Amino acid sequence: MKKLVSSVLAASMVLSLAACGSSASTDTASSSEAASTSTAATTEAAGEDSGAYTGTPIKIGGIGPVTGGAAIYGQAVKNAEELAVKEINAANGSDVFEWKFEDDEHDAEKSVNAYNTLKDWGLQVLAGPVTTTPSIAVAAETANDNLFMMTPSASAPAVIESGDNVFQICFTDPNQGVA
């Protein structure tokens, strides 16, 4: 259990740091191409006493613009999330996380639709949306569903006003303005 909690905390830290420092690709991809999942390892392969996580993988979803005018931000977060999941799964010798990313094109309605798609997939933790307007829209939905949401880069104070389940990693606009 300690290893699982450590992995989740490490994933959160890696996602937040990598999203801020990554450079984005100019590639564009459709939502279906942007979706990427890892496969689950069997408990026999990991073994009971190996120290590897042998439970059901935790489903983490990401939402952000990987096409359109704000794609540079979404692509950076998508790359960071994908790398973090791959590294944590490799370090544990089993798939602790399954991950899927949806393109919202920096549009609030598309972001809510992406959230619903991820929820239908079995989403347990949401790492996104990336930008503020979609984050505000999705935060209201996650509050209704009592689902953990962590946005790596949405900076308006209104993002976290929906509920106690919504968190921001970056500084809010008033703090950035003072700095």
Rank of each mutant, 00 (worst) to 15 (best):
P57M: 06
G69R: 03
G93D: 01
T56D: 11
E82P: 00
T67K: 10
G64K: 04
S30D: 07
E44Y: 04
D95S: 15
D95M: 09
T56L: 00
K59W: 01
L83W: 06
G61H: 08
T28Y: 01
A90Y: 02
A91C: 09
N92V: 00
G51D: 08
V85S: 04
E44T: 14
V85C: 03
S94D: 04
E82A: 11
A34N: 07
G93M: 03
Q75T: 15
A84G: 12
S25V: 02
P57H: 09
K78Q: 12
A80Y: 05
A45T: 13
E81T: 02
A80C: 03
A52M: 05
D27I: 09
D95Y: 01
S30H: 07
T42K: 14
S22Q: 11
I88P: 07
T67C: 02
A41K: 03
T67W: 00
A45H: 01
A35K: 14
V96M: 09
A80I: 04
V66P: 08
T67I: 01
A41L: 04
V85M: 13
T42Q: 14
S94H: 01
E48I: 08
G21A: 14
G55N: 10
S22D: 11
A45C: 05
A41M: 04
K59N: 09
T42N: 15
K78R: 15
S30E: 08
S94P: 07
E33H: 03
T54R: 15
E48P: 00
N79L: 08
A71W: 02
S30G: 13
A70Q: 12
T26I: 00
S30Y: 06
D95F: 00
N79T: 14
T43A: 15
I88A: 13
L83K: 14
S36E: 11
K78T: 00
G47W: 03
N89H: 04
T54L: 10
A24Y: 12
K59M: 02
E87C: 05
A35G: 14
V85G: 04
E98V: 12
I88Q: 11
A35C: 15
S31K: 10
Y73S: 09
G51E: 05
T26M: 06
E98I: 13
T28R: 12
T43Q: 14
A91R: 01
T43F: 10
E81F: 12
S30W: 01
D49H: 03
T39N: 05
E44K: 13
A91G: 11
N79K: 13
A29Q: 14
T54E: 13
A84Q: 07
S50H: 10
G74L: 09
F101L: 02
E44A: 15
I63R: 05
I72R: 12
T54V: 11
N79H: 07
A52K: 03
K86V: 04
V85H: 02
T54N: 13
A34K: 09
E44I: 10
T43I: 11
G68M: 05
E87D: 14
T26N: 08
G55F: 00
A76P: 05
E33Y: 02
S50C: 10
I58F: 09
A34Q: 03
S38Y: 02
N92T: 00
G68S: 07
E98A: 12
T39E: 13
G68D: 01
I72A: 15
T26V: 05
K78A: 14
